Each structure stands twice: as structure tokens, then as C-alpha cells.
Amino acid sequence: MPAQTYDAQRGSSAKRGYGTAWRKARAAWLRKHPLCVECEQQGVLIAATVVDHIKPHKGDMALFWDRDNWQSLCKSHHDRKTATEDGGFGHGPATEQQGTELVLRPGLTIMRVR
């Protein structure tokens, strides 16, 4: 699916749940959890700027608001995670599970889908 079609089908950020209530919850979460969890695991202290849904909610509002499904990430780690889940930067979601594995570091493997 072309990136433009995928983006159009996703709807606005507000329609996906990222409205005023999310912005308030996000700010409160980042105050309590200010460091990127991935950077911390590497022994590096970097401020988080994103509240990530560990398991993609895909419109499931119960999962969206489940704080056990949230983690603080820096933009770099969030971008990498999202690209892995969505099939690459701006390329829409991956539809196949075959491809070439790319091991970035132990415990972080992404799949390049062809």
C-alpha cells in the first residue's frame, strides 16, 4: 500500500486518540518517567520525548490508555521501533513476515521486508 494511501486511512491524530486528554496524560507520564528506557538499558541517560505504546494499540482504546503498555523513549528509539512495526519510514505497515533480519544490537532485531 502506498504511504499516502496508508496515511489517509489512518485518520487524524485526534481521531486516533491523540487529543487534549492524551497530551495531558503524556506530559504527566514524561514528568514521572523522564528518561528513555532503551537508552537507560545501554547505560546512557537521555531525556525521553515520546510516550510509546509498547504493543501497538491499532485503535483499541483500552490498550491505548493502559499505562502498563506505555514506555518513555527518545525520538531516535521511537522512530526505529515505529519503522520496524509499520514496515519502514513512510512505507505503510508490513504485510509479509519474510525478509532479511538486521541485528542492530543484541536484543534489537528488525526485519527488512521485501
Rank of each mutant, 00 (worst) to 15 (best):
D7S: 11
T100A: 10
P93V: 13
R10T: 07
C74D: 05
T100V: 11
M111V: 14
E38M: 09
E96F: 07
A3L: 08
L104G: 07
K24T: 08
L73A: 04
G59W: 10
L45Q: 15
Y6Q: 04
G90D: 12
G99S: 07
A3M: 06
T109M: 04
V103T: 15
W22G: 06
S13I: 01
A3S: 13
N69I: 09
A28T: 13
Q41M: 12
G107P: 03
T82N: 06
E96M: 05
E101Q: 12
K58F: 09
V37R: 03
R105C: 09
P93F: 06
A3T: 06
T20H: 06
H57N: 08
Q97L: 12
H77W: 09
T82V: 09
A25S: 06
Q98R: 13
W22A: 06
V113Q: 00
W29N: 01
T100Q: 15
R67V: 15
F64S: 01
I110G: 01
T95R: 13
T95W: 05
T100G: 05
T84S: 14
T49P: 02
H78N: 14
C36T: 03
H78I: 07
K75T: 07
G17N: 00
H53A: 12
H91M: 10
P106A: 10
R114E: 15
V51H: 00
S12A: 06
D7C: 05
D68S: 15
G43S: 06
W29G: 00
R26F: 03
G92P: 04
W70S: 02
L73E: 00
G87P: 04
V103K: 10
R105W: 15
G19A: 09
C74A: 10
R10M: 15
V50H: 05
W29S: 03
W22M: 05
G87S: 03
V44K: 11
T100P: 01
T109Q: 09
L108I: 15
D79V: 11
I110V: 14
Q98E: 14
R23Q: 13
Y6E: 00
V37A: 05
P93Y: 09
R16N: 02
G92D: 01
G99I: 12
L102T: 11
A48G: 14
